[in-house]
């Protein structure tokens, strides 16, 4: 399944956003802000870029995806539903007792989840291990790792960046969901990232900065990454936290809060409106 049409991909991203709001509302807990900001990235990866098979989730030569910002599991689960890995019905169990859909993704519980994540800062190292294996076995698969912008305050991310550079992991593509907000407020106030492009460049990465909600720009960036040789790529995706739900946009309080009934209905109405526009 490969969808080329940006309008269709935008529609899928919108459906993922609806799944996000549904899950967080039903669970009355979870992380809507950062899930909404990465929905377009997820749609492009799973429907335009990655070589994956819903009927064979463990296919050895498949591309891998590591959701390093594991708290954005609603975006991953929503994407897996749209891509046919997961039954939509299961989304109602998100974060509830005995559900396979844990608060943070568990690779042993959900087909299509390539790595268990949740403790921030660890995913890029894992993605490196997968990419190194692909190189060692000449398997040719690619590895994608989605990082939060707040997450890269963790030192391990930069240890991993040095590893990706050392081993020239051109089959690795990291994506930073640069939505500028973390729990305690604006990233620049909490722990200034400052020259984010320069940081990744100096660690040996090929850096592409794009509008993380512009489907065509994302497609182009991932395509450029595939053609880049001898070095890993990072896509700095400029995004809006809470994207698609007006009252959640750019509001740090929606990092980890569930909407009430009224807010839920408003959010769904806005997102369904967006769906009709497509």
């Amino acid at each position: 399944m490969k969808i080329e049409n940006p309008e269709e991909l935008r529609k899928i991203a919108n459906k993922i956003r609806i799944h996000i709001i549904d899950q967080v509302y039903e669970a009355q807990s979870g992380h809507p802000g950062g899930s909404l900001s990465c929905a377009d990235i997820m749609a492009v990866l799973y429907f335009n870029q990655m070589n994956i098979h819903e009927k064979e989730p463990e296919a050895p030569l498949r591309d891998r995806f590591v959701l390093s910002k594991g708290h954005c599991s609603p975006a991953l689960y929503g994407t897996l539903v749209e891509r046919g890995f997961l039954e939509e019905e299961q989304l109602k169990t998100f974060r509830k007792i005995d559900s396979n859909l844990q608060g943070h993704p568990d690779k042993n519980k959900v087909a299509g989840v390539d790595m268990t994540t949740g403790s921030l800062g660890q995913g890029l190292s894992v993605a490196n291990g997968m990419a190194l294996n692909s190189k060692l076995e000449h398997d040719g698969y690619r590895v994608y790792c989605l990082l939060g912008d707040g997450e890269i305050e963790e030192g391990q991310v930069w240890e991993a960046a040095m590893t990706a550079h050392k081993y020239k992991l051109d089959n690795l593509c990291a994506i930073v969901d640069y939505n500028h907000l973390q729990i305690d407020g604006n990233i620049e106030k909490v722990k200034a990232l400052d020259n984010l492009e320069g940081k990744w460049k100096s660690f040996g990465f090929h850096v592409l900065t794009v509008d993380g909600h512009d489907i065509q720009s994302l497609i182009d960036a991932f395509t450029t990454a595939k053609l880049t040789k001898e070095k890993p790529t990072v896509i700095i995706a400029k995004t809006v936290k809470g994207k698609g739900v007006s009252f959640m946009e750019n509001k740090p309080e929606w990092h980890g809060k569930a909407p009430n009934k009224e807010e839920y209905e408003k959010a769904i109405k806005e997102l369904k409106g967006g769906l009709e526009e497509c």
């Binding site: 050895p60 894992v126 291990g129 997968m130 391990q156 991993a160």
Partner: peptide
């Protein structure tokens, strides 16, 4: 992996998934 034990164990985990 250099003097980067956290990265080393994460990378090991990645290999193990494969």
């Amino acid at each position: 992996m250099g003097i980067a034990e956290q990265d080393m164990l994460g990378t090991a985990a990645g290999f193990a998934t494969c």
